[in-house]
């Protein structure tokens, strides 16, 4: 398969095209409490990838028949702004965004104490405003901080980052050229307290041994992200 715009190499002299080392994450910044209308919110950038997450609720479930008398539900809507991609991205749900919304909700649910919120819905909205790969992992990191900012009872934060492979080299946190032209992409959501994985997807081609190595690399990066998430929350609630 020949793809237009494909660079000759993704790794040059032991460095990635953006100068990063193989197991180096892009710069991350997180700010909690950016949307006053919402119960909780967070803005996050992962290199050039930028997302804003907001949490509304617990509130009435719509449609009503989805309400569970024993516990709350988490609804997640991932959307990508029309101007977030090189070609204008048609607004509205796509098959891709519907799938990401589904796996995101499933990734966030295990840390939320839903028994506390019977009959209600906790609605998580994430808008991708600038896309340079890793949007679902950025969205999960931001959504998790937004949930905590909303005061939702949780037993952990959810951290997320992708591993992958480009020019035969295992790498962390793919950016656009590596995502488009690399050999594999493995986005993971990780719960640092219990060491469990709550989101896992993969495309490309990897041996089981490569997957094992990537999971180790991802786990380490997620522990870094965890610190940054907690710092963002501390910053939001420190006495001024």
């Amino acid at each position: 398969m020949v793809k237009k715009g494909q660079p000759e190499k993704l790794i040059v002299k032991g460095k990635r095209l953006d100068g990063r080392g193989f197991d180096q994450m892009r710069d991350v910044s997180i700010k909690a409490g950016v949307i006053p209308e919402a119960e909780g919110s967070a803005e996050l950038s992962l290199g050039e990838t930028k997302v804003i997450a907001a949490v509304y609720g617990p509130r009435e479930v719509i449609p009503k028949h989805l309400a569970n008398p024993e516990k709350g539900i988490i609804k997640c809507v991932y959307t990508m702004a029309s101007f977030a991609t090189p070609d204008r991205n048609r607004p509205g749900p796509s098959r891709r965004s519907v799938e990401i919304s589904k796996v995101m909700a499933e990734a966030l649910t295990p840390v939320v104490n839903l028994e506390k919120y019977p009959k209600t819905s906790i609605d998580v909205f994430v808008e991708v405003t600038n896309a340079n790969a890793g949007t679902r992992t950025a969205a999960i990191n931001a959504a998790s901080v937004a949930l905590a900012d909303a005061g939702i009872e949780m037993n952990d934060l959810v951290t997320s980052i992708a591993g992958g492979k480009a020019d035969g080299q295992l790498i962390l946190d793919l950016f656009n050229p590596e995502d488009n032209y690399g050999e594999a992409d493995l986005p993971i959501a990780y719960l640092p307290r219990t060491g469990e994985v709550s989101l896992l997807q993969m495309d490309g081609e990897l041996t089981p041994a490569e997957i094992e190595k990537l999971l180790k690399m991802i786990k380490k990066a997620c522990e870094e992200l965890y610190k940054k998430q907690k710092n963002a929350l501390r910053e939001r609630y420190k006495l001024k």
Partner: peptide, 17 residues
């Protein structure tokens, strides 16, 4: 050859590494 070419986790539970 035993290589993995796609994966997907589903539902709200978790797996360990």
């Amino acid at each position: 050859n035993g290589n993995v070419c796609a994966m997907q986790k589903g539902e709200t539970g978790t797996f360990t590494i």
